[in-house]
Write a protein that binds this DNA or RNA. Sequence first.
RNA 1: GGGCCUGUAGCUCAGCGGUUAGAGCAGGGGACUCAUAAUCCCUUGGUCGUGGGUUCGAAUCCCGCCGGGCCUACCA
Length: 525
Amino acid sequence: MPKDTFYITTAIDYTNSAPHIGHAYEKLLADVIARYQRSCGKEVYYLTGVDQHGQKVQQSAEREQIPAQEFADRNTAKFIEMWQLLGLQYDGWAATTHPQHKAVVQAILQKLYDAGQIYKATHTGYYSVRQEQFLTDKERNEEGEFGPEWGEVEEREEENYYFKLSDHIEWLKAFVHAHPHFVYPAFRAKELVNALERADAIDLCITRPKSRLEWGIEIPFDTDYVTFVWFDALINYISFAGYLKDEVAVDTAGLPDFEALWPADVHLIGKDIMVPAHAVYWPIMLHAIGFPDEAMPKLVVHGFWNDKRGEKLSKSEGNVIDPATRVERFGREGLRYYLMSAIATGRDADFNDERIEDAYSQDLAKNLGNLLNRSLNMPKRYRERVLTKDADYDDDLNREIRETFTTLPERVAEKMANYQVNLALEVIWSALTLCNQYVDKTAPWALAKDENEAVRLDSVLYHLAEAMVHAAFHIAPVMPETSQRMQDQLNYHFPEGFTVADLKWGLLPDGHQLGEGTPLFPRLT
RNA sequence: GGGCCUGUAGCUCAGCGGUUAGAGCAGGGGACUCAUAAUCCCUUGGUCGUGGGUUCGAAUCCCGCCGGGCCUACCA
């Protein structure tokens, strides 16, 4: 039975540096999906947050001689500031230093330890003293040696705790085989299947001795160790959803009801952290904890933004994209529209400033903004802004407009079911183009000159204004403020709790008085 | 080394075995005036990265090569 809640999460960002366009894209996509589901009447819970622990945070903090928490908090503030800039509306904030989260992580570790899923073992390997980490063959350079960037490399032994990943690999293979929609899109699911086929049954090291990493969650059964990355970070998806909140009630203020939310409808992640973290460790952790197959979350894997030459964005290349400067030029919603329209969910895309410029002036200023403006201006000139609802006139052009807008919700839903926001926008924009063509074909300025065409003019003006109301509804997930401004200008506001099921033709009453039209997206200078 | 994705008009992409390869934007021409010189109509433009192969038929399937990207299980 489908639940009427919709639980969506994103990866939680590492607080070692400031947010960039990739972080922004992921959180924005989640925001749009969340708003869309809400507009469909779902009770939505959108969780995002930050991963604050770990060695890099500890090292950076030491370098600046400040406490790790202070360092993490400072970067956390940059993320929050960015999310405000983008107008994100999330319901839960997962910061991994939160006491309730720590307590849940510890409770889970204890439970798995008691169940014999965690054991202690010794690892011998090459260790970089400077970087304070063990090195693997991947760190070797082309000559097969560890380069000077690692400093002094020595052979070292270390005891750690391991999680019995190997016990569950066969289960995971069977699960993935039986649940082809565990990962979206399909080609990523294929990638996972291939990765699992070649997988060795290796266990996962889940601790670090405090002697080299203190900035983490202490494991409950051995105070000399803290837990390492994934056992901390991945658990945020359940700890901040209210998991174990009765059993482990340290600080449960504001936590939702876990039973109502779980399983997550969407774990939105980047392609870089699918294998092994989210598609191997995470389902196995849940399975080991005792979650049944039907309580496994769904993964939605998105692609990356590259630069306009198709090359990776990176600090060292000097081609990073700062969202703030684009917001300054194109407005918050100009950037939101571009980031949602110019990439196919799951694929990579090239970030191109000329394309944002085009999207802003063509799609937003002209096709949408100017359409609203003309739709408001003609009633103002010819009818003192008052609409007549059931004018005694109809024809094929009118019917086409009504049909297009009454079928729009299902056509948008078809695309949104696969998170294809870009295609949903395309469908919406083709309806806007139809409106522009409609104005041209009906030529209201000509009708206005002929008294015999008065009823027809009434019907045209009504169809246009009503279409704009519907458009305001459909663009809302991507551009909530623009939707609001359209409603203001149309002098019609969707009532509280209005959903797509209420979106019927004829929302504007007879005698409706339209508001004043002002450009939604002023021309760029 | 292995896996997955990707290379199609100037740009961003769709098409993924079958009539003359499509869309949006940009470029060119025309119409119209309600509007943020806006909208509408028409139009220029491509040996589908490259070399082979399979097939009656390939952008579409297979193999090699070249370019771009992600992952490869204890470096978010």
